[in-house]
Design a protein around this nucleic acid. Structure first.
Lengths: 120, 120
DNA sequence: CTCTGAGGCATAGTTAATCTATGCAAAGGA
DNA sequence: TCCTTTGCATAGATTAACTATGCCTCAGAG
């Protein structure tokens, strides 16, 4: 036993994974591999968001197909074979749109969820 | 044909529909039918969020099964046969949790998406 | 040297939520 | 009468996420 539960389990907001990946690459500046992307998201979100590998790699493939990231084989900091992802110019441009869309939906949600909450 | 395009098409944030429904019922106070719930969400969100009927009715069924809403047949304002949904006490309690979860995830997302944006 | 754990990629199969398309039915105005 | 709006509901497709699994390599422990 002694499985002293995590206070709350990590999750994901459906539909936001691609934005999280793009933003992570943007913030990190230089190319990053999948494992590193997942760890970065988890760390920056304070362990709230957990990206499963079975979600991550398909998402990276979708982003590649759309031309928003470009992948190439390289070597990680730990001297291991790794697939490094870099933002393409199109991907960089795409981020702004994704953020705008997200915030537009968010505002709309909030209008429904928050009746008339002043400042909180 | 004056089909002057919508500036942006209405969408949904996946995973948030149940919260939207519960909140709508809470705000409206008295029982509401499916059609009315959809119109309410669309109106309050300023036509950004559009709830499709094929999403709405299954969602209402899920909420019924979980015991968060209770449905009964009645008559709408327009004198038509309608299925009226009311929040149960459990459903009312559930709203707080749903909102808390949503905002927790949202904050986590924002930590990733917004590098160091002060107050916006 | 061998074993093991951590780092790392990837896919197959399942589940869950949403959308599309369709059907039915009654009310009320043209 | 006919058509639009209101109203409920399901079946099937799509999509994104999850679970579970497998393989490979590096580095440190024994």
């Amino acid at each position: 036993m002694a499985k002293a539960g995590q206070p709350k389990k990590s999750e994901m907001m459906p539909g936001t994974l691609e934005l999280l990946i793009l933003k992570t690459l943007e913030r990190h500046g230089e190319p990053l591999h999948g494992y590193g992307i997942a760890r970065h998201i988890q760390r920056v979100s304070d362990d709230v968001l957990q990206v499963e590998e079975g979600s991550l790699y398909p998402a990276l493939q979708r982003l590649s197909v759309k031309g928003w990231v470009k992948a190439e084989w390289g070597i990680s900091d730990n001297n291991r074979r790794a697939r490094l992802y870099r933002l393409t110019p199109a991907g960089r441009r795409r981020i702004a749109e994704q953020v705008a869309d997200f915030e537009r939906l968010l505002e709309a949600m909030m209008r429904v969820v928050r009746p008339a909450e002043g400042a909180s």
